Amino acid sequence: MSVSPDVESQSSGARSRSRCLDTFLTVSVIALFIMFIVALAAALLFVKHIESEMNARTTQDSDGQKGPLEMVAPGAAYKMQNFAYLRATNSQLKENVMEWESIPYGKGQSIGSMYSYEKNQRVLNVNEAGSYFLYVQLTFSCTHICPAGQFTTSFYNQDNKKQLTCTVSLPKMPDMNGSLPVSRTCWHVITLPEQKSRLLAKTEFSEQTLNNWKLDLNDSGFGMFLVDRLGAA
């Protein structure tokens, strides 16, 4: 029995529509991926910009010259209320809750009004619900003969759920000749659904000790900034 031309044309049309739909979905996924990468690249550039301003502010000469906060665009104050940066304060590598501190920035500190840091509990309070870009940079140096191992820092919220984990592989250093710092930066976009959220960082090692490895305080810290408020129009 022969197939009628109408049935053949319908089948061909269905296949054509299916191919068009597959192509559309594929292109849409690729476009969304590219947009995501571009947004993250812009976020990283913004983080580096703010960090460089804060580092310059901490090394400002006491000659009465204006610091970076006074010289940047008027929108900097708005940006800073959404931004927080804290620097590591203990160079010793221990399995514990990490210690941080804010640094001078303009007439205040490197924590915007949306945040507060509890030094005794080593907790950063985040006062608004939303999506945040969270990153951490860890830099290590070897002071003598250093063993190989892994150092991991994980950020937890108030429900003890991991928001970001960063693991640094430290090589064996038989001596100090020619040894270079070991550094890694990790980031993630996290969602904090509650108006009052808390973040703290805990450390763990692959080895029992990492003798003679030290955390470089000037190049180790974490920061975050608001990407999108939950419920925002």
Rank of each mutant, 00 (worst) to 15 (best):
S113D: 05
V72D: 06
N96G: 10
A129M: 04
K79Q: 03
S113H: 06
N120V: 04
S131E: 13
E70C: 14
A73P: 00
T143L: 14
A73K: 05
H144L: 15
Q65V: 11
S141L: 02
V126P: 03
N90G: 08
Q81D: 08
K79I: 07
E118I: 01
R122Q: 10
N127D: 12
N125G: 07
Q65C: 15
T59L: 15
V126G: 10
G106P: 00
L93H: 01
N96I: 13
E118Y: 05
S113L: 13
L134K: 03
F83M: 09
N127Y: 10
G106K: 00
K107E: 03
W100T: 07
R87A: 05
L138W: 07
E99S: 08
T59Y: 09
P68R: 01
S113Y: 00
M71W: 13
M71G: 13
G130C: 12
A129K: 13
L86H: 05
T143D: 08
T89I: 15
P68C: 11
T143E: 10
N125L: 10
S116W: 01
V126L: 06
L86C: 06
E95A: 09
T59W: 09
G130W: 14
S116E: 03
N120C: 04
V126S: 10
N127W: 12
N82A: 09
Y117K: 02
T89L: 12
Q121Y: 14
T89G: 08
A77N: 07
Y115L: 14
Q65D: 10
T59E: 12
Q60H: 12
E70K: 14
E99P: 04
N125C: 01
P104F: 08
A88M: 04
G130L: 13
D61K: 15
S110F: 05
M114Y: 10
P68S: 11
A88V: 04
P74Y: 03
L138S: 09
Y85G: 00
V72Q: 09
S91P: 15
T59F: 14
Q65L: 09
K66N: 14
Q60W: 12
E95R: 00
M80K: 03
S141Y: 08
Q121D: 14
H144V: 12
I103W: 02
Y105H: 05
Q121R: 09
K94G: 13
F83S: 05
F133T: 05
Y85N: 02
C142A: 06
E70N: 14
R122K: 14
V97H: 13
E95Y: 00
Y117N: 02
Y85V: 08
F140A: 06
A73C: 05
N82W: 01
C142G: 08
T89Y: 07
K94D: 03
F140E: 04
S116P: 00
L124T: 07
P74L: 09
L134V: 03
D63A: 15
K79M: 03
I103V: 15
P74F: 02
T89C: 12
P104I: 00
V123R: 00
T59G: 06
N90D: 15
Q121M: 10
W100I: 00
E70S: 11
E101A: 14
R87F: 04
A84T: 03
K107V: 12
T143K: 08
K107M: 02
H144K: 15
N96Q: 13
V72F: 04
E99A: 11
G67K: 02
K107W: 11
S62R: 04
F133K: 07
L93V: 06
Y78R: 06
D63P: 02
